[in-house]
Every structure is written in C-alpha cells, then in structure tokens.
Design a protein around this nucleic acid. Structure first.
Lengths: 255, 255
DNA sequence: CTGTTGATGCAGTATATACAGGTATAGACC
DNA sequence: GGTCTATACCTGTATATACTGCATCAACAG
C-alpha cells in the first residue's frame, strides 16, 4: 500500500508490506488480542474507530472483522460492538498440537527419546500412503514422548524426501520431528484417522500391558499436492485422550 | 429484494426474500453445483457473467464466491476462473455425519434399534456435562445401529430438556435421534473426545467379545450457550474407524 | 414512577468505481 | 514453424457511499 509512509500515526504492525491490507488488519487485531492488550470479553474499537486508528477504509476493516468473527476469534453483536472471544480448548484432532506444549501446560515434565532415525525403502503401505512408487527411499523416525518420565505417545513416522529433503539432517534433540515439519513444511491439508488397536510390538516402548488398548491417531499431511508425512501416533488408552471443540460455522455456514 | 420483478430473467432461486442477498447468491451457486448442472471441475460463470445473470453488483457476487471458496466448495484461480471442487471425503470427526448415509453410501443395509427411551434424573457426570444441577430431569436414549445387521455403533445419549423439550415425543422409527436433533436444534458448537475403551456392559449389544477394544466418541453440542446433548458413541475397533481430512486454512489463515 | 419517544451509534448489507496483477489467445513478426 | 507482444478477460483488492435494523440511553409526558 502507498499510504504507509503518508500516515505517521499508523501502528507499526501495519507497516509490513507485501501482504493484502485486510490481512495486515487481521494480524493487527490478532496481535492486540494475543498480546493481552485487548483481553477476552473486551469490546474492541468500532469499525469507525479502526478507520481512524489505522487509516484504512471501513469496508476493509469490516472484512477483517467479519473473517475473524467467522473464525471464532471475535464475536460481533449487531448494534452493540465487537468483542474478543474467550479462548476455547481446541486440540489434537483438529490442529497439529505440540504434545510438549500440552504436557508443559499441565505443569509436567516433558522429554522425548529417539528410537530410530533412518532412510528406508518404502513398503507397499507406506508407498501408497505417501503416493510414492514401491521401494522409493523414505525417511523413518521412531520416537517416544514422556510425561513425567511415563511414556504417553509412541510416534512412528515416515517422511517423503521430496517434501522435506533435510529431514534426516536434523538432530531432533532440541526440536521434535513434528515441530521441525511444522516450521519447515507448513501443512496445507491434514488427514486424521483414529483407530483403537493393540500396540503390537510397541507395548514395550510404551511400557504397558500387551493387551492394553491404544488409540492410534494416523496423520497424513500435504504441502500442495505432495504428501509430506505419515505419522502413526500411539496413545495408551489409560494415559491420554484426544479431544477437540469447534464451531461448525467456522467451516461453512449451513446451507 | 426489490429488483426481482424488474428482471424477469432472474432465476427463481433468487426470488426468496427475507435473506441477505449474498446468501441467496451463495444458495444459487450451491444449487447449481448440487443439482449437477455445474459439475465438479467445471468452470462456472465469471463474476461479471453472474452480475448479468443475477442482476446483482459484482462486489456481492464476489463476496458469495469468496465465502464459498473459503468453505472449500469452489476453487478460484486468479486470471482464470472459478471452478466447482471435487467433493472430498470428510467425516465423522469434524462434522456430525449421519451414520445411515455413510452406510448406505457403501451400498449396505442400514437399520437401528431403540433399546431405551426414558426420562431420568441426572447423575453427577451427566449433570456436569450438560451444565445442569445434580438430579435434574434429562432424557436418555440408547440405540444400536446396524450395517447389514451387524452392530457397528452403540449410541448412549443424554439430552438437555431445555435444549430439545420435544425430544421424548419423537418415535425415532423413521428418523434417528441424531437426525432429529440436527434438524430441530442445529449445533452452534461441537466437542468431540475420543477414547479407547472396553465396552463394559455394552459388549452384548454390540455382539463383540468382552475384551475387544472400542473407540468411544463422546460428543457434546451446544445451541448458543446451552448444552443440548451428550452422546457416547461406541464403535467396535474391528468394524469402524473415524477419519477426517481438512485444510487448516478453513479455520483461520496462519497468523 | 412509568411508559413512550427520539437521538445516537453500531453492525450488516449493498452498490459503484477503480486499479493491480495473472492468464490465455490471437495475430504480428522473425 | 516458433516466438514475441498486444489485448482482452478474470480474479483480487481497496475505497467511498448509502440505507436498514437493532440496541442503548436520555429526555419527556402521563
């Protein structure tokens, strides 16, 4: 936009160029809410106030607020105002949550241990899941995640080298594989499948009984049209559950 | 809208009054796509074409197309056109799918059987889940769903009378409880929790072994601020899996 | 004290206008 | 024939303007 140097009073957040204006307005609002300057429940400035504050037309403000409201981050009440929404627990099934964050949020100790890190040839299952020819090279990682030294997740992950060629170069001692992939290859599309299974050979790693059922969360992600990773995440039923909460309207309004 | 009688060529879908214009445009587009007149992959008329067809300003068309595109029903390519999207399998974990539709879509026979339909006093668990005082009256329904006469889901449902007072008046022989609630009390908010459990006393109803693990999908829904229903859905691990696929950007763009 | 009325501010919607940048195609040119 | 270019078309974005309906609050009349 050209006006950024013409309006000295404009907040710094708005100065980043190379993004659509309404996106920068959204980022500005999110920033205020996330920094705590606008707290949950607060009424935020009206559209016309924001016109004055940001030096942007009301329709642009309106679009930013409308989209944030559709995403559930704001609530708008006609004739009253726009409010910051109370954050809701939303987790594992909808987003790719960082298990470490969840564990630390409970005030517990988090550590993980790499069991295997290797390049392998894709079996039929893996090849088909990653849409690769049978026998292609794939990266394979096995890892156990602990909460207070108790295993709570067994991660059995395959990675498409085309999607993340530097994957094996990572040491994964300061950053988990999931964190690395999240930052290096943002997922455009996610598929989650949940099964209830017996852990098979993994029962030793999870330190559970051979016949204790596990949740198996199978996650595939795509970057564009390319499958990036296939992760099988085993959770001992007694130690973990998967949960999410969302507004259907965030996807599409009923029609 | 007032122009409907001035433009005889305007399609009938657009004549329904009492809804926002851009909503009616969305309905018109959806109708074309769903009726098959515009097939997946087809390029639909450009914004300017739709201006002429519907007699509505381009910005209104633009808003309708943009929202349909954000909802994943259309794909827009700058400088090229707008296309109808291939429907993706999206299921159980994200939406409230009708299990009957899923089963019939596989070409199998679907039937269900009511085991219990009663008014009860809420136990501590149920009262807390429905945010009611301990001992309040709640509706209780138990039902088994069959695919080709094999039980695939055990439904143990509690309903808040404040949310659906006529629930017990339904016979549920032509319509399942889930279908009734979907139509009578659209859910503003949904919480899904997945556990891996042993079915307890339900193993007889599901005709499985006592120690066969089950997926337990616990669903709570809200209408506004009022919890409406708590449904515990048991799936024998060997007969069903839960899956979903989605674009994270459908919730909120990264920011 | 109560009920009505009116002013004010806000969200929501709708339209016209404008420009930027991507894309495809026809026709000129080599 | 192959390549370049002008052109038309399409989406995407940004702005100004205007009208509707709702909520709130204060002034006023009974």
């Amino acid at each position: 936009m050209t006006a950024s140097n013409a309006l000295p009073a404009m907040p710094a957040v708005m100065d980043q160029t190379s993004a659509a204006l309404y996106q920068r307005v959204k980022a500005y609002i999110r920033g205020k809410a996330r920094s705590g300057e606008w707290k949950p429940g607060d009424r935020i400035p009206s559209e016309n106030d924001l016109v004055r504050i940001l030096g942007v037309s009301r329709m642009t403000i309106n679009r930013a607020l409308r989209e944030l409201s559709a995403a559930g981050e704001l609530v708008r009440r006609g004739g009253v105002g726009t409010f910051v929404v109370e954050p809701r627990p939303r987790s594992t099934l909808l987003m790719i949550a960082r298990i470490g964050d969840e564990i630390r949020a409970r005030g517990h100790r988090y550590r993980w241990k790499i069991i295997l890190k290797a390049r392998e040839r894709a079996s039929a299952d893996i090849a088909s899941a990653l849409e690769l020819p049978l026998g292609s090279a794939v990266f394979h990682l096995i890892c156990v995640h602990h909460e207070n030294d108790i295993p709570v997740q067994l991660e059995d992950r395959y990675v498409n080298p085309a999607g993340a060629p530097l994957f094996l170069d990572q040491s994964f001692d300061r950053q988990t594989a999931s964190e690395y992939l999240l930052s290096a290859v943002p997922a455009d599309e996610i598929e989650h499948t949940v099964d209830s299974v017996l852990p098979g050979a993994g029962f030793r790693l999870l330190k559970i009984e051979k016949n204790e059922p596990c949740l198996l969360l199978t996650r595939r992600t795509w970057a564009g049209e390319t499958p990036v990773t296939l992760a099988k995440l085993f959770y001992p039923a007694s130690r973990y559950r998967l949960s999410c909460r969302f507004k259907p309207s965030a996807f599409q309004d009923q029609g």
